[in-house]
């Protein structure tokens, strides 16, 4: 099977987004199988967006926000995101969809190595889980 995962990531532009930029500046290589979208805050991303991404073919969704407690540029966006996605993961499990397909990572902006490493881990994990469609050809 020549399937390979394509993931989407939503990064808080103040923390994970800066880390992604520093990863570039420092030439830290990581898997290309993820498209990273910068948003003002991970608190903007709703469970609907994430499930929408799955329905459109995302094999996994990566969310990068600010490391608690104090690094969120908007004070508490990371907490909102955490609660929403924690619940969403619980819900996904009940539907038989692997909650591991959502990856939450929390950053302060200098942690670019962490960004690269967690993306690589995530891509590997999704490779093990297989395609979101469960291998069924559409």
């Amino acid at each position: 099977m020549d399937w390979e995962p394509w993931l989407i990531g939503f990064l808080s532009k103040w923390t994970a987004g800066i880390a992604a930029e520093s990863a570039g500046v420092n030439r830290v290589r990581y898997s290309p199988n993820i498209v990273l979208i910068n948003v003002p805050c991970c608190g903007l991303i709703s469970p609907i967006h994430v499930v929408d991404a799955f329905l459109q073919g995302a094999d996994g969704v990566y969310i990068g926000g600010a490391l608690p407690p104090a690094n969120c540029h908007y004070k508490v966006g990371n907490f909102k995101a955490f609660k929403r996605f924690y619940l969403l993961k619980k819900l996904m499990k009940q539907f038989g969809i692997e909650p591991e397909r959502i990856r939450l990572e929390w950053f302060v902006s200098p942690q670019y190595r962490k960004l690269a490493k967690t993306i690589d881990d995530f891509v590997d994990e999704i490779k093990k889980l297989g395609p979101i469609t469960g291998g069924v050809e559409e």
Binding site: S46, P47, I48, V51, P68, P69, A70, V76, F79, K80, A81, F82, K83, R84, Y86, L87, L88, L91
Partner: peptide, 26 residues
Amino acid sequence: GLNMIGSIGSILLKSREVKLLFPGLA
């Protein structure tokens, strides 16, 4: 369900988020 998660995720324990941190909220 997804909209409800968005809503309650916003206001659940909102005044104690910083104290409880992720493990407490979980």
